[in-house]
Amino acid sequence: MAEKTISLKLKVWRQKDAKSEGGFEDYSLDSVSTDMSFLEMMDVLNDKLILEGKEPVNFDHDCREGICGMCSMVINGNPHGPQTATTTCQLHMRKFKDGDTIYIEPFRATAFPVVKDLVVDRSSFDRIQQAGGYISVNTGAAQDANAIPVPKPDADEAFEAATCIGCGACVASCKNASAMLFVSAKVSQYALLPQGQPERKDRAKKMLAKMEEEGFGACSNTGSCSAACPKEISLSTIARMNREIFK
């Protein structure tokens, strides 16, 4: 079967560094295979730019398997593109039509400053995690997993919360650039398991205070975070976080 190709007009955000103003630059790309991932299409664009003696577009990526949370990008206004439950690296060009114009922007949030082009600094997530997203574990051999009974529904919910890859799409999609879905996923993951109980009383408070200190907004329960989340983290984690404040 012949490979299907499309031509695209790209409007890509270019920004020299954090202090520069930045703006969109127009590029045309022909013969884009619809079997390519979005990042492979960006690789093709960068090859073209290098051959033309121009600076390639900087963007974050790592595993390209949808599990590391490194790739970002807001594609036509949607973090990780138009498809739900998908990271940018797992988005394929078959989702676009021949002749489409695609706007490609960085995740925009005060707490995610642009480093260059489409690369943003998401280390604020690391600092939130350091503020309370941990458990205390003694040194020595781990005890048998079955020695600590965990009800199946709790284990399932904790696991679902733990699937958060910390990509920041929730922040990028939220009209308030709130990190509540990320923080609540981390809080839920530990609140539901016995290992998370020793620090439970302060965890949500500490992580929330750090989230606010980093400059993220408040949650308006619009649900756009959950819709943009590649791991489909539920809004119920945010409700749990709202309860955890009183623990």
């Binding site: 036509n76 206004g77 138009p82 706007y103 925009r108 308030n176 650039a177 907004g217 756009s224 819709a227």
Partner: peptide
């Protein structure tokens, strides 16, 4: 919390 807005608004299921 967001000083620069997006050039294009979200669409489809990701639009609140």
């Amino acid at each position: 919390s967001r000083q620069k807005s997006y050039a294009v608004a979200a669409s489809g299921e990701k639009k609140a």
